[in-house]
Design a protein around this nucleic acid. Structure first.
Length: 572
RNA sequence: GCGCCCUUAGCUCAGUUGGAUAGAGCAUCGGUUUUCUAAACCGAGGGUCGUAGGUUCGAAUCCUUCAGGGCGCGCCA
């Protein structure tokens, strides 16, 4: 819903009609022309760069053009109270009260969709995909919440979104994981000492899994090889249950879980390779030795190679190991071929910072596999730096020392974690101060926004006012005061925030915006402390302007927090 | 060495896909509760937007150079 689109159209058609008078030859390229809320220091309701853009294309003086356009608009568009020229050629517009009423009614009419714009794509967003070898830790949280909120945001605009989790239940890591469980079982059942070898998982949760398996089964577990298939299935189930339970507690529910093993077992790799051989993206050949540290396992052997260098990757990538078995990347090709075959319009992967080097090859792979029909965009979330008592706190699953999501959730509310993890752009590192997040105070932005909602609900309770879904207003009794106007302008900005957040896949813009909106409200509210005339409630009543304003704020808070999936308490 | 990301107030960060006088929070200093929720508000100080060029009516934003920091650079997953 673009609430100013109709005005922009009116202006454009007016200009087209008067093209000759305005000396405009080129008029078909309207790219970059906008009509939006001016910066805070300006009092006008709307602002357009139209004259500057058109003047550039037609090689005219922007100010002269603006003077003519100003006269045209003034004479023809009734909803505008005043039209001014400012700066290098901006057209600034004051709306009439009638126009404000129209816009506000538009918002009220379809309040639960206020801010969304029509979009109808089929998305697949893959996120979390934490290895099923242990519980989720704090670092996983960021990508998890990012992906979840991005999904909500895209759905808000009318897209269809599949939230997907890729289970890496294949390969050496799983072997080591299952071996760890096996050894813990031996420890419990036969009192054998747990050997702390370097690739094993020493974490306490492994013992829990072992214990659960023992409780439910009366097998001997006298050979690792013989027990493997059974143990792998059981241990992975317990592990995934842990992860799913953590995700649920964070408010995240995936629509789809895809197993790497099942992809490989159903000849997925072979099919993907067949496809890529057709398109000549795969060849048999030799690779250069790896550049970083020396690798004693490296062998110069003829093997299948994906030509990822065609897509900007540093080098081509091996699909087979020394023994001819598939690499992780080969399996991933199969998985993404599977995604492509499910006919999505757009694929998104949310990755951790340690996977940046992987982006080009996998994005290239999707283009190759789909014949350029499907695009994959990888969003990389930078590290979460955990601080404890002023010192960085390192997490390592291998070492078994980490703060799990479960630990975190036992002390910090889900709301705070969700809001906090989105309070930075995904491109920058996030400092997550354990102590700070534990504080339930103004340090924590989520409380500030929730408090805004609680205050509004308190007012509504006080005057016994019931908010109706589809309300309308007929006119505005008195002009909005400057505080109300500032809030209105912020409200009118909401669709733009949503649009940009959606286009750029940047959900962090939402918490930032909501915080700003809450600031304006708290500020206005407090004016009543200084000046009696700004008190909201007088003789048990609230004037119409305030009723309008707080209902609008409610709409935005509700739509925004619904996307974030953070609660809005009525009382605090 | 190569790739990706970052560099904006003392600190942590926003910044509208090129717009007008670059903004918040924290910290510092000073104010506001017999009053609708002080979990709040108001005011003050604080900036060569890392450096040097370029593109144009206009650059924190785009291009190039250099410097500093982070992540990665397997035939691990």
């Amino acid at each position: 819903m673009n609430i100013f689109e109709s005005y922009l159209k009116e202006i454009l058609s007016l200009i087209k009609k008067n093209q000759n008078k305005l000396n405009l030859n080129e008029i078909n390229n309207f790219k970059g022309i906008n009509l939006e809320i001016p910066p805070v220091n300006f009092n006008e309701d709307l602002s357009s760069n139209i004259c500057m853009v058109l003047a550039k294309i037609n090689k005219l003086n922007p100010n002269e053009l603006a003077t003519k356009v100003q006269a045209l608009i003034k004479a023809n568009i009734k909803d505008f109270k005043d039209v001014k020229i400012a700066g290098p050629g901006f057209i600034n517009i004051d709306l009439s009260n009638d126009a404000l009423v129209k816009i506000i009614n538009k918002i009220f009419k379809d309040s639960s969709n206020f801010g969304s714009f029509n979009s109808n794509f089929k998305f697949n967003i893959e996120f979390v995909s934490a290895n099923p070898t242990g519980p989720m830790h704090v670092g996983h949280c960021r990508g998890a919440i990012f992906g979840d909120v991005l999904s909500n945001l895209l759905k808000f605009n009318g897209n269809k979104v599949t939230k997907e989790y890729y289970i890496n239940d294949y390969g050496n890591q799983i072997k080591n994981f299952v071996k760890s469980v096996y050894l813990r079982i031996r420890e419990i059942k036969y009192e054998e000492k747990f050997k702390d070898e370097k690739d094993l998982y020493p974490g306490e949760y492994i013992r829990d899994i072992a214990q659960k398996i023992l409780t439910n089964n009366n097998l001997k577990f006298d050979s690792f090889e013989k027990s493997f298939d059974f143990l792998a299935k059981e241990a992975l189930n317990y592990s995934m249950d842990m992860i799913k339970s953590d995700l649920t507690k964070l408010g995240i529910i995936h629509d789809s879980f895809v197993s790497e093993k099942s992809i490989v077992d159903s000849d997925g790799v072979i099919n993907a390779i067949k496809q890529l051989k057709k398109t000549k993206h795969i060849e048999e050949g030799y690779l250069e030795p790896p550049k970083g540290e020396e690798n004693k396992d490296w062998k110069k052997i003829k093997r299948l190679i994906f030509k990822s260098a065609l897509f900007g990757d540093d080098s081509n990538r091996a699909l087979q190991k020394n023994d001819g078995s598939w690499t992780y990347f080969a399996n991933d090709l199969a998985y993404h071929f599977n995604k492509v075959s499910r006919k999505y319009d757009k694929l998104i992967n949310i990755l951790g910072a340690d996977h940046t080097g992987y982006v080009k090859r996998i994005e290239g792979a999707v283009l190759a596999l789909s014949g350029n029909k499907t695009s994959l965009e990888c969003k990389v979330c930078q590290l979460v730096k955990l601080f404890k008592k002023g010192k960085p706190f390192k997490m390592s699953k291998r070492a078994g020392e980490f703060i799990s999501v479960n630990d975190l959730l036992s002390e910090v509310s889900r709301d705070s974690i969700r809001f906090m993890m989105l309070n930075r752009s995904n491109d920058v590192e996030l400092e997550f101060d354990f102590e700070k997040v534990l504080e339930k105070s103004k340090e924590n932005p989520v409380y500030y926004v929730q408090y805004c909602h609680a205050r509004i609900q308190s007012i509504l309770r006080m005057i016994n006012f019931k908010v109706e879904k589809k309300t309308t207003i007929k006119k505005i009794d008195v002009n909005f005061n400057k505080y109300e106007k500032d809030i209105l302008k912020k409200i009118f900005e909401w669709p733009k925030i949503i649009r940009i957040a959606s286009i750029k896949y940047e959900p962090h813009r939402i918490p930032f915006y909501l915080y700003q909106l809450a600031t304006l409200f708290h500020s206005y509210w407090s004016k009543g402390n200084e000046d009696e005339k700004y008190k909201f409630i007088k003789d048990g009543k609230v004037n119409n302007n305030i009723i309008i304003i707080i209902q609008l704020i409610l709409i935005v808070l509700q739509n925004g927090m619904k996307i974030l999936n953070v609660s809005l308490p009525n009382k605090m």
